[in-house]
Design a protein around this nucleic acid. Structure first.
Lengths: 153, 153
DNA sequence: GTTTTTCTTGCAACCTAATTGCAAAAACAC
DNA sequence: GTGTTTTTGCAATTAGGTTGCAAGAAAAAC
C-alpha cells in the first residue's frame, strides 16, 4: 500500500477532519518535520504511547506500512527531538516520546523486563547526574534498569 | 588452529611455566569455570584490560582463535561473574572486568565515545541508586554516558 | 494550468553482529 | 587401554538494522 496524502483512502483511514489533523501536522512542523502521509500516520500511533517501543512494535501497529518507511520516520523524528532513541539492554533499539527541551542530558530512567522484553519509562525518575573526568564531554546519558516487571512477577 | 592444553605449541604460545599459569587457572576455577585451553588464552588477554571491549576486539587480540570459541568463552565468563556484559549505546555488546562481589546492582558508569566508539569504565563513579515503583524487581543497572572522549576532542 | 525538479515511498537486497548445529578433537572417567 | 562427556572450529543461520534504487507524489518553476 502506498501512502499519499492526496489519496482518498488516506483521508478515510485517518479521520482527516480539521482540528485534530491540523494540530498533529503542526506539531511535526514545529519540530521541523515536513508532515507527509507516512509521518502523520506514524506520529498518530506514537504520540500517546506510555512506554518505549521498538521498530517491530510500530510495524505491528501499522501492518500495511513498509518497514523501511517506518524506520525512516522514526529516525527523522529522533533527529528532530520528537523521539528519544536508546538500547534496551536486550539487544534491541527502542524509542520513547521525548519531552526534553533542548539538551538530552538528563532524561528519565528506563526499565527493561528480562522476561517479557517490555521497556518502561519512569518519567518521574530523572537520571541522577554523575561527574566525568576532565576532557570527557557528555552529550547524553542513559540509565537502564533490568529486572522483572510488575506484570511478570 | 585448534587449541588444546596438551598441545606443545599451546605451552610455548603461552609461557606455560608454573606460578603465573597456575594462578590464572585457579582464578577461573574459583569462579566455577573449567580452565580449558581457549578459556585460559582468552582470560589471559582480558585480565589486565582497563576499558570495555567487544567480541571483535578480542578477535583481533587472538587472530588465530575462532570467533565462536571466543564468544562462548565470553558468555561463560559473564555467567560466572568474571565479566560484566552491557550495550555500549552504539549497537554493540561490550564486556568489562567484573569486580562485583555478589550482586551487580551498583556497577560503575560507562562512557562511550560517539566518534571513536571506545567505551571507558569510570570505576570510581558508582551508579547512583534510583527508586523503582513497587512490584518492579531490579536485577542490575546500567549508567551510560555518550559523548566525546578525551582522545577525540 | 503544464512542465520540471525535488522529495518520499515501497520493495528488495544487503550488512553486521550475534548465535547455533554439528562433527571432529580433546579431556575425563574408568 | 575403552567408552563417555565436554570443548572446539567451521559453516551456516538468525535477526535487527540499514541502504540503493526506481516509481510515485509533492513542490517549484514556468
Amino acid at each position: 500500500m502506498r501512502f499519499s496524502r492526496k489519496d482518498k483512502s488516506f483521508e478515510r483511514r485517518n479521520h482527516f477532519k480539521g482540528m485534530v489533523h491540523e494540530s498533529e501536522e503542526e506539531h511535526l512542523l514545529e519540530h521541523g518535520v515536513k508532515p507527509t502521509a507516512v509521518r502523520i500516520l506514524v506520529w498518530r500511533k506514537l504520540r500517546l504511547k506510555q512506554g518505549a517501543f521498538a521498530l517491530k512494535d510500530v510495524e505491528e501497529w501499522l501492518p500495511d506500512m513498509d518497514r523501511s518507511s517506518i524506520f525512516r520516520a522514526l529516525r527523522l523524528f529522533t533527529e528532530h527531538n520528537l523521539l528519544h532513541e536508546f538500547e534496551d539492554g536486550m539487544g534491541q533499539c527502542k524509542y520513547c516520546l521525548c519531552r526534553c527541551e533542548g539538551e538530552h542530558h538528563h532524561g528519565h530512567v528506563h526499565f527493561t523486563c528480562v522476561k517479557c522484553g517490555r521497556t518502561y519509562c519512569f518519567e518521574d525518575q530523572l537520571i541522577p547526574p554523575v561527574s566525568l573526568p576532565l576532557n570527557f564531554e557528555m552529550q547524553e546519558a542513559e540509565y537502564l534498569v533490568k529486572g522483572i516487571c510488575e506484570k511478570c512477577r
